[in-house]
Amino acid sequence: MAKTIMVVDDSATMRLSLKSALELSGFKVECAGDGVLALNQLKFGVKPDLIITDINMPNMGGLEFIKTLRTLPGFRFTPVLALTTESHQEKRDEAKKHGATGWLVKPVTGPDLVKIIKQVLPGA
């Protein structure tokens, strides 16, 4: 069964880019524009096997989103990858502290993306 991946990013370009790369690799993709919107989707039954989230977003940023996510039933152990840039090492540690599994460095290309996902998502 195809795994579902949720992409949370306020940039439509980034969403589109990740979505097309992931779909090309056979994943089902759900998108959300910020943490609040993502949580809403989760509350209404979207059940991703993995979540990729940007850190810097309006309304609710990635760190708070991950923190809240971990309190929801069914998402305590879901792998979460934080989207970061190469210049912000401290963000990664912070993201991990908030419950992220790992990070992706923008820009992420298709093969890298799939390689990393296969590493954190059993059965992908």
Partner: peptide, 9 residues
């Protein structure tokens, strides 16, 4: 585990 890790995997 609460960071979504599966160390065994």
């Amino acid at each position: 585990f609460f960071q979504g890790d599966d160390p065994f995997f």
